[in-house]
Nucleic acid binder design. Sequence first.
DNA 1: GATGAATGAGGATTCATTCAT
DNA 2: TATGAATGAATCCTCATTCAT
Lengths: 237, 237, 237, 237
Amino acid sequence: MRETSRTKRADKAGESTAEAALKTATESAPRRRQARGERRIAQLLAAAAGVFCRTGYAAASTNAIAREAGVSPGTLYQFFPNKEAIAVELGGQLLQRAHEAHGQAFLPENLDRPLPELLDAVLDPVIAFNCENPAFWALMHGSGVPGIAQEHDELHVGMLARVEEVLRACAIPTADTNPAELNHVAHMVLGIVKASLELILASEGEERAAYVTELKAVLFRYLDPMITTPPPRRPPR
Amino acid sequence: MRETSRTKRADKAGESTAEAALKTATESAPRRRQARGERRIAQLLAAAAGVFCRTGYAAASTNAIAREAGVSPGTLYQFFPNKEAIAVELGGQLLQRAHEAHGQAFLPENLDRPLPELLDAVLDPVIAFNCENPAFWALMHGSGVPGIAQEHDELHVGMLARVEEVLRACAIPTADTNPAELNHVAHMVLGIVKASLELILASEGEERAAYVTELKAVLFRYLDPMITTPPPRRPPR
Amino acid sequence: MRETSRTKRADKAGESTAEAALKTATESAPRRRQARGERRIAQLLAAAAGVFCRTGYAAASTNAIAREAGVSPGTLYQFFPNKEAIAVELGGQLLQRAHEAHGQAFLPENLDRPLPELLDAVLDPVIAFNCENPAFWALMHGSGVPGIAQEHDELHVGMLARVEEVLRACAIPTADTNPAELNHVAHMVLGIVKASLELILASEGEERAAYVTELKAVLFRYLDPMITTPPPRRPPR
Amino acid sequence: MRETSRTKRADKAGESTAEAALKTATESAPRRRQARGERRIAQLLAAAAGVFCRTGYAAASTNAIAREAGVSPGTLYQFFPNKEAIAVELGGQLLQRAHEAHGQAFLPENLDRPLPELLDAVLDPVIAFNCENPAFWALMHGSGVPGIAQEHDELHVGMLARVEEVLRACAIPTADTNPAELNHVAHMVLGIVKASLELILASEGEERAAYVTELKAVLFRYLDPMITTPPPRRPPR
DNA sequence: GATGAATGAGGATTCATTCAT
DNA sequence: TATGAATGAATCCTCATTCAT
């Protein structure tokens, strides 16, 4: 009954290249208009990020977002069919960037390193990303939006998979015999990271650094005993 | 101008002594009526707990709570001056029970035990309490209600203090030199417990047990190296 | 659709004397009950007077009246079918007393006195009554209750008639030729009295006395030129 | 936490200069839109005036006002933050016009005229204003709104001052010796005017004219004896 | 595209009134 | 009778969403 779907921008994005070619002649004006549209969207999403951060998704009113973006509510609805779509789009973008950050975190070569280095390599980008995009938490945590929940779940599942992958690569003995347990460990690791992230985001300066150190200590001590590896491990995949 | 306090009962203070005398003989009826009121309150709080659990405080409508309790909206307001008061009362009751559970958890004699037993002694009641009162999380986490936030903070500070106390009792070396670091460790411990609690609450049966075990493992491995007390420890699991 | 009518007490009041006679044997118990009922009604009306005085009729809640009377809302409805009935009953009682006061004010022999004495004789009881029954104004003025409005109108009409009567007795020349004008004068007199009454009620002590004097001065100077009766008059104050 | 002030418009402050530039060419459209808003406000205020007049402030529901204005309740709240603000705005506008009317009434040159002319000069504009703005009474009298009460008090105090000024100018002997008494006289005059105004507003045509005449007669006869200014006066009517 | 007015379904809360005890 | 809980319609107000310009 209600449109849960994407934004209207997606429709334009789906234009076939053929049509795009046809328009090259008169392209300057539309392009500018399209560019302005993009700017508006970015503007709106930035505003939404700010408002969501401050008040949470539920308490954020579309009017507040429009006002923060310096446009009228009508304009907002020119680009997003409803409030949820804003969150989904914003979540998507943040997710995209999160994936990039994580891609950088879970490099294959990291798997060969000793655990402390591995933790540095994986956690630092994740922490950095979250510090730079505080709205990410606000959205992913308890927005209650189905669309977001799905995205969040996808992200979560992805991260779980990556963590499990790392754990498997580190050759935890129980992992081979009991995949369920490995899953539990991965969940715990993720949970610990999230909990610490909250402390990290809430603090700054030296305190923040201290929490980062502490997080790594927790994970190191938790995971180190699980790791069989003396030396000989072969890169996964 | 607005009553923020408990219920609206006890308005009959102005009763003439004559009438009061008339009633002493037949006091059982009023008492039964009062009992009904208490039952309603319990009913309403239970309903509120359910609704808050499902939708969170902000999205919970008083009408929904009344409906869940099987009464009319007006009845709800006979016992609570406003939505917030319901949350505060419920939070207060849960807090009370939480304090009892925690009192049982942080017994002085536990401090002398080896870490694994200490963890069992402390965590088991906390976990049990949270499993039995899932609304506790829903309320304490992000209700946005000032009264609740205060209660939560008090609880949080109290728990931090207790954790620090335990840590200090276990003679963590850094604790003496650096109280700030001890505070960070306490925060981490609490964060880890909370994160795990979420996993524990979201699962059941064997999986839940597994997460409990995992939580204890995490904390043991995190804290054990900090403990000066020399010999008698045996890795858990 | 709604009972606008009298109270339930009225029903009992209407008991035929025959029935009353039948009951004389067992009268002591009922009489006490009835007496208690009367007390309750008096209690409730007193409470209503207070609340109406403080907040006005519209803003007065039945619960507040019951509370002020020290009884439960249910009890209030045992004696009055609805909020309006309370106002009507209270208005009726006050009106009764007002009529008594006015009856004392408009004595036939006063008509023969010189104007200053006449004014004293008429105004003093009216003023005294209103000072002693401040609820009278609160109710009569802008209660918006149809029943009250009617009572008020009756009172008003009655007073107008009496004032006209006095004026006519004083043989104002225009009164004979133009009854409409006489009516206007009566209205003005009443209006002036009411306006002054408000000032009188709002003040106390010497100030109140000053306003009383002023009121009489206004009326004297207004009416004196209209009076045919030639001889001996001396300006007041 | 809540906006008590004017309307919610003027939120577009954050507009980028780029868009602002785009619009300068087509400014007529926004202006027309704004004009529509102004019209709506006027419409709503007119509706409010009507409803307040009929039912009084307290009993007037915002939905009723919206309905009377032919708009939805939401629209009303687009322009006024709450019910009180409507009353305050309406009161303010009426007060403004009242001040203009009164400014016209209390011209300095009037003070030199004989009393009957002075009364004409002062009363006629006041009466005219009140006849044209019947909502003025409804609002100023017993709205119970703090904002209004303040406005009303200011008006009242202002009028008292003006009346006292006039009285002093007319060189009432007692005024010099006893300022308190002068104040009482001013209060009486105002009270008489108000009472008469009620009669005037409630009637029409010849009757209304008659009451106007009567009011002036009352005031003339009340004040004339107080005036020192020697001879030239002629009884009115 | 942009604007801001318009909409109306809800949500919190009150209160006159009724009812079981 | 007295009690106080129960009712539900009505009130003020909000906000996601739509529409005319």
